[in-house]
Computed example of a mutant assay.
Amino acid sequence: MTADDSFGRLDDDDYPAYTMGRAAEMLGTTQGFLRAVGEARLITPLRSEGGHRRYSRYQLRIAARARELVDQGTPIEAACRIVILEDQLEEAQRINAEYRRTAESAGPPVA
Rank of each mutant, 00 (worst) to 15 (best):
M1E: 11
A3D: 14
A3G: 10
A3I: 14
D4C: 09
D4R: 13
D5S: 11
D5Q: 13
D5G: 03
D5I: 11
S6G: 00
S6Q: 14
G8C: 04
G8F: 05
G8Y: 07
R9E: 06
R9W: 01
R9L: 10
R9P: 06
R9I: 01
R9H: 04
L10C: 07
L10Q: 11
L10G: 04
D11S: 13
D14K: 04
D14T: 12
D14S: 09
Y15W: 14
Y15N: 08
P16A: 06
P16K: 04
A17Y: 02
A17D: 03
T19G: 15
T19L: 09
M20S: 14
M20Y: 01
G21T: 05
G21C: 02
G21H: 01
R22T: 15
R22D: 14
R22L: 14
A23H: 01
A24T: 02
A24H: 00
A24M: 00
E25H: 11
E25I: 07
M26F: 08
M26W: 01
L27S: 07
L27G: 02
G28A: 04
T29H: 01
Q31Y: 01
G32C: 05
F33Y: 00
F33S: 05
F33W: 02
L34E: 00
R35G: 00
G38I: 00
E39H: 12
A40R: 09
A40E: 11
A40K: 08
L42K: 05
L42P: 05
L42H: 00
I43C: 02
I43V: 15
T44Y: 02
T44G: 07
P45Y: 03
L46C: 11
L46T: 14
L46Y: 11
S48T: 14
E49F: 10
G51T: 10
H52L: 09
H52K: 08
R54W: 08
Y55E: 01
S56N: 03
S56E: 02
S56T: 05
Y58E: 15
Y58K: 15
Q59N: 01
Q59E: 02
Q59A: 02
R61W: 06
R61M: 09
I62F: 03
I62Y: 03
I62K: 03
I62W: 06
I62C: 04
I62R: 05
R65V: 03
R65H: 09
E68I: 00
E68Y: 06
L69C: 06
L69N: 00
L69M: 06
D71R: 10
D71Y: 04
G73Q: 09
G73D: 07
G73C: 09
A78V: 14
A79T: 00
A79M: 01
R81W: 07
I82N: 02
I82F: 00
I84M: 10
I84F: 04
I84A: 10
I84V: 09
D87H: 13
Q88H: 12
Q88D: 12
Q88L: 13
E90F: 09
E90Q: 14
E91K: 10
Q93T: 13
Q93Y: 09
R94M: 11
R94A: 15
I95N: 12
N96Y: 12
A97Q: 13
E98T: 12
E98C: 08
Y99R: 15
R100N: 04
R100C: 00
R100S: 06
R101Q: 14
T102Y: 08
T102C: 11
T102H: 09
T102N: 10
A103M: 08
A103K: 04
S105M: 12
A106M: 14
G107F: 07
P109E: 11
V110G: 13
V110P: 03
V110N: 12
A111T: 10
